[in-house]
C-alpha cells in the first residue's frame, strides 16, 4: 500500500485537546462532523483545506494527553491517511491502529520533511520518500499489524469472532 499526499507539519507534544477539543467529546458522535473540528485549537486552517490522502507529520510525543479516540478518528475522516512522528503517545498510537490509520515512527524523516511538500509512504517496503531523500521505518509488530491490515480493531475483532 502506498500513500502520496501533502504534508501538514507540526511540532513536539501535540496534545489531543488541540486535535479534538474536549468540549465536543460527548456531543459529537458523527465521524464526519468530528472531521470539521480536527486540529481546531492547533491550526484553524487545517479542517478547511485538508485533502484526501494528506499526511500529518509531528515531532515527539504526538497525541499526548487525553486518550479520546476521536482525536484519531477526526483526522482520518478529514482525509489524513498516515501520521509520521518522532514518537507517539501510547494511547494515540493505539487509537490510530485501532482505526486503521498508519502511524509511523521516524525521527530522521520528520527532520527532513518540509511543511507543505508532497511525500510518498510505502507501507509494504517501509519507506518514506520526500524531497530530501528516502527514509526507512521499522515494521509494526505482527500482532499490531494484523489489526491495522484488517482495517482497524472492530473489523479485526469481527473477523476473529466470525461475525463479519
Amino acid at each position: 500500500m502506498s500513500i502520496k499526499g501533502k504534508v501538514w507539519k507540526y511540532g513536539d507534544d501535540i496534545n489531543t485537546d488541540v486535535i479534538f477539543p474536549g468540549k465536543y467529546t460527548y456531543t459529537i458522535s458523527d465521524p464526519n462532523e468530528m472531521a470539521e473540528h480536527a486540529l481546531e485549537d492547533l491550526d484553524p486552517d487545517f479542517a478547511k483545506n485538508v485533502k484526501e490522502n494528506d499526511i500529518i507529520v509531528g515531532g515527539k510525543n504526538f497525541g499526548c494527553g487525553s486518550g479520546r479516540e476521536q482525536a484519531a478518528v477526526c483526522i482520518r475522516m478529514a482525509g489524513i491517511r498516515a501520521v509520521i512522528a518522532k514518537s507517539f503517545s501510547r494511547l494515540y498510537f493505539r487509537n490510530c491502529v485501532n482505526n486503521g490509520l498508519p502511524v509511523i515512527v521516524s525521527a530522521e524523516a520528520v527532520d527532513a520533511i518540509e511543511n507543505g511538500e508532497i511525500i510518498e509512504v510505502d507501507m509494504d517496503k517501509g519507506t518514506i520518500t520526500c524531497a530530501a531523500g528516502t527514509f526507512e521505518f521499522p515494521a509494526l509488530p505482527p500482532e499490531v499489524r494484523g489489526i491495522f491490515e484488517d482495517g482497524g480493531l472492530i473489523p479485526h475483532t469481527k473477523k476473529i469472532l466470525g461475525t463479519d
Binding site: 479516540e69 494511547l91 487509537n95 480493531l153
Partner: peptide, 8 residues
Amino acid sequence: IGRSETAV
C-alpha cells in the same frame, strides 16, 4: 485504553 478497545 480507547473506546473501541473497551467495546472489544
